[in-house]
Design a protein around this nucleic acid. Structure first.
Lengths: 217, 217, 217, 217
DNA sequence: GATGAATGAGGCTTCATTCAT
DNA sequence: GATGAATGAAGCCTCATTCAT
């Protein structure tokens, strides 16, 4: 029977989810190309062939992972910005984004590192979920520019890209947490900085820039 | 080891360079993992085995490429900022970085996309050249903070990361140039924006932020 | 064992038949090795596992198909030759054989093409139904030789083989109907010739040979 | 260097030939589908990957084998019929064909059994070598019909098919040599009949048919 | 009996690397 | 140094078969 009660759905969806998150952990651990499908299967506790009941190919696994996480992220961001002024939306966007990164380290690692793979994923693959994400951020900026809160000196879609760059890079640095930051001796691996607190720094940069404002307020 | 004395540079150094730039083009075209060593050999006009006279492995080829380009970049940046005030150094840094990206599209593509590959390159590989790069940027910011030009609200090494994020993301967007930005019709692929002109936008963001300054000017 | 009593034939015998003929169509369409058991199941309108309630294996499906069709053929041939003289039996045999081929294209395709697969089917599998078939033809020839109608210059079992070769090859040519025969332009695919009419040609070949008989008639 | 002296050519061609004939033996032994590429490699004394330096795929190996043998056969036939009358050409054709089968048992097994595989080889693959073969035989018959030696009651291309059917079936029977012919007890495996001697039987069938000629000569 | 999700063994093929010339 | 034919390890994926429901 292919009829599933609500109870079954967790059972079946469960396996797909289990594979997806197993893949996320394995891809984060070894990198997409070095990861073996059979490792994902082992991590998920299923047979190798089972993966192909739920995903077309190893590539499809990565893309599905990406879309699944982007959807989750987009929903969280939508919720976070609902009913706010453009200014507040921008702050909420930044805070929520970094909070999600902090909550899901493996996902962050896969999204920030693996998905830059050019072939198949950034070039061939159209990546509509990411386009939506950028459009959402661009929309906030456009609204803020229209309301006079943000300068129009920078095109909204470029500004969106720049903000994403800041967030993405911080997420990457946080996830790897082994680059010698200025603070420590060369080669030392500083403790991970508090990425949620970093949200305030991003907001500062985005809104008032780095220039010292001796005279202001 | 792939260390070569100055003497090598005359005859075989030439071949080494040829292989390196052939690899850059091939990696940019197909992506590092999809690229075949034999394709690099064909592009360079040498036999497959010859590559292994100059490089330990395919990985070594990518790392060498990275180090070669980072060295070039660092030198260009050093030259650009020499003898300037911290404020001006920051501007010069941004302009020079984006100018180099514009000059060398294949190199930019490899550096921004391929080098995020976690395994071997961001995790296992220590990446001293990139650390130097960040340290250089961090040093400029620290100096600017010390001179009172920049706010101390953000740790210098974090600020360096954020600025790098902006630059890196713009370089990536420019290199791919196929994401539908908000400005055009859905699905349209806007012409590449002028990345050199984008330097001014980055400088605006970095120095005064996005906030509208109604009273200024 | 796939032996079923008469009782089975009412309900499940139906399903067995449905699977068998679905297999015939699928094997004819894709070839035995390329055909998937699940495709046979889909064509038959049953679940994959159901096939294994009626057949031991995919191989068993092909063998059952073969035996089923050979039995049918043998019965038709027996009926056709009953009560005739050896001479007439030979003609009836040839006509009936080709008529059956024309009636059941998918069966013909499977029998002529797939069953030559050596492993399992012509080597390992004893193939008693085919042996019976040849024995029947050989018996007709032996009788005709004994009655003085046919020459004894050729051993009966060899003659039987040769006649089968003629019939089998015509059936194959008819089923494929895409070999460029001498008659048409090179590369042209002639329409299927009338295989039933071909029976007369076979009878001519078998009885009087190809040699021109200037004095006869 | 890719320059090969005449001596080298045997060295290089040698390996291709070695693989080809190893494949022939392995395919004859296990059947094409059951045969593993690695078994062919082992039989040829090369590494698995080496096969792919000379052949595109496992399928290509079978097709190459087929074309190689058909070319050889066609050349032998051309030589055998050169300068003869149509009547004699037909006899020479039959004798040469069966002689070649006797000389190369493995080749005969692969050609008669494996090549009937529908998918890829009789349906998708155009099979020009076989078409040439049939055209050659058809040409002989047409000439013999024109000279009045053979009856025109049967279209030449159909007659060619029928003769090929006789030859092919005898070759198959000889190669398998396990079908219980009428002569022995059921299940017994008679010694292989002399296939070269069978040529006379074929000639008898083809020219004068099976009918007893009491009054003739 | 019927189902079809799950299994997992196994093979074709690729490609980084080697080494005899 | 340069070559490129040869190597062979390794992985993605398929699909016949099983078995819990």
């Amino acid at each position: 029977m292919t009829v599933h009660s609500a109870a079954d759905r967790t059972g079946s969806g469960d396996k797909r989810e289990r594979i997806l998150f197993a893949a996320e952990r394995i891809f984060a651990r070894h990198g997409f190309f070095a990861a073996k499908v059979s490792d994902v299967a082992k991590e998920a506790g299923v047979a190798d062939g089972t993966i192909y009941l739920y995903f077309k190919s190893k590539d499809d696994l990565l893309i599905s992972l990406f879309e699944r996480r982007m959807l989750e992220l987009t929903e969280a961001l939508q919720t976070a910005i609902a009913g706010k002024s453009p200014r507040e939306q921008l702050r909420a966007f930044i805070r929520t984004y970094l909070q999600k990164c902090a909550d899901e380290a493996a996902a962050t690692e896969v999204l920030t590192i693996e998905l830059r793979q050019s072939s198949k994923f950034m070039k061939e693959y159209e990546n509509p979920a990411f386009a939506d994400f950028l459009r959402m951020l661009g929309g906030i900026i456009t609204a803020a520019q229209a309301s006079g809160d943000l300068t129009q000196a920078i095109p909204a879609h470029i500004a969106a890209r720049m903000i994403f760059g800041v967030l993405d890079e911080l997420a990457l640095a946080w996830v790897l947490a082994k680059q010698p930051f200025g603070g420590g001796a060369a080669g030392a691996r500083p403790k991970k900085f508090d990425i949620v607190r970093a949200a305030d720094w991003v907001i500062t940069l985005i809104t008032t820039g780095l220039e010292a404002h001796k005279e202001s307020k």
